[in-house]
Each structure stands twice: as structure tokens, then as C-alpha cells.
């Protein structure tokens, strides 16, 4: 059953990435150099809507949402900085790079091979990395911190920064702002 869901959900994700143009590096180049904000709008809108939906469902049917929060340590930010350099160079990211294989892009094949090499390099450097300050936690509240309250995983509630208000309120405000931004943003900020 789970494998069937993997095929359906993975297939749907790849289908959507392709249909919105996200597997096309041209669209990602224009996204990053702000000469076409289509993908920005899609990301903001879909994250905002997903946020509001899962926190609403979590309020009316606790336990129905399978949350999974990743730990916040300084390496998360540094990893993001490194990722950003690679993102600008390749104009592909792991998800779009894999999906782009499905439309026969040869540069995506090279990207995925590079990705396997990058992963091999992290495996070789992991022992050293874990001894650096990169693995110090960002928040005193713990590793898996959220903004909105009520995120439960394996029976434990994740510590929330805004824990004095219900999680759904934070999700409505934050998610609503992201959706509003998707509508407000112009088609482009710069020329191609």
C-alpha cells in the first residue's frame, strides 16, 4: 500500500513540477535573477495554502497530519548558503533535477551525477563536520523548533516560539501573508 502511494504521490509531484515549468532551468534562472517571478508566486502560494490546510486539519482532527520537523543547527543556514551557490550555477535543485530526467534533459543527468558526488563528499567529511560549531543548536528551546504550536510527532509536541497563541492563528497569519504576497508580487522585477 505504501509503495502504491509512493508511486502515486511521487508521480504527481514530478508531473506538477514539470507542468509548472520548474524542471526547465530557464524558468529557474529567471526565478533567481528576478526576471520572472512565476515560480516565486507558486512557491509562496503553495506553501501558504499547505500551511493553512495542515494546521486547520490538525485542529479539527489531531493526529491526521504526519508532521516531520528537521533540526535547526547553524549548519542548516551554512548548508543553505552553499546550496544557493550551487542553485545559481546549475539552475536546478534536487527535486527539479530528478524530475527533469523524465523529459530527457542531458544537463539534468550531469546535475544528478554531480549531486551523487556532492553527497559522497558529505559522507567523507561528516565526521569532521560534526565536531565543528556548525552542529550547535540555533534555539535554546531545542532542535526541532517551530513558529506555530501544536506540531506533534510520535506523541511529543514540538517546542514553538509563539506558544501562547493557538497554532492555527500563527498559520493563518503567516500562511495568509505568503498567499497575499503571491498575488501582490509583479510578474518580474528585472528585465531578462
Amino acid at each position: 500500500m505504501e509503495i502504491l502511494l509512493a508511486i502515486i504521490l511521487g508521480g504527481a509531484f514530478g508531473f506538477v513540477l514539470h507542468r509548472i515549468g520548474a524542471t526547465n532551468p530557464t524558468r529557474l534562472i529567471d526565478m533567481l535573477r528576478l526576471s520572472d517571478l512565476k515560480l516565486e508566486k507558486i512557491i509562496l502560494f503553495s506553501i501558504g495554502l499547505t500551511m493553512i490546510a495542515i494546521f486547520t486539519i490538525n485542529t479539527v482532527a489531531p493526529g491526521a497530519v504526519h508532521f516531520s520537523i528537521r533540526a535547526a543547527y547553524w549548519g542548516t543556514f551554512v548548508g543553505g548558503l552553499i546550496f544557493g551557490v550551487g542553485f545559481a550555477l546549475a539552475a536546478l535543485c534536487p527535486g527539479t533535477g530528478v524530475a527533469a530526467l523524465g523529459e530527457g534533459r542531458l544537463d539534468a543527468v550531469v546535475y544528478v551525477i554531480g549531486g551523487l558526488v556532492g553527497t559522497f563528499l558529505i559522507a567523507l567529511s561528516w565526521g569532521w563536520l560534526t565536531s565543528t560549531p556548525l552542529f550547535q543548536l540555533v534555539s535554546d528551546l531545542g532542535p526541532k523548533v517551530t513558529l506555530a504550536d501544536g506540531v506533534v510527532r510520535h506523541g511529543h509536541v514540538m517546542p514553538a516560539i509563539f506558544d501562547s497563541v493557538p497554532g492555527i492563528v500563527v498559520a493563518l497569519v503567516f500562511g495568509g501573508a505568503l498567499i497575499a504576497l503571491a498575488f501582490i508580487l509583479p510578474q518580474k522585477l528585472r528585465e531578462k
Binding site: T76, G80, I82, L129
Partner: peptide, 18 residues
């Protein structure tokens, strides 16, 4: 694309996601 692949995956695996 190759160098970008190396860096994005190195960064993503350091950060714990992409």
C-alpha cells in the same frame, strides 16, 4: 550543472533537506 549538483547536494545534506 555538475559543480552546481555537487554544491546543492553538499549543502542540502549539511542542512538536512533541500
Amino acid at each position: 550543472a555538475f559543480v552546481g549538483g555537487v554544491l546543492t547536494l553538499y549543502g542540502a545534506r549539511l542542512a538536512g533537506g533541500c
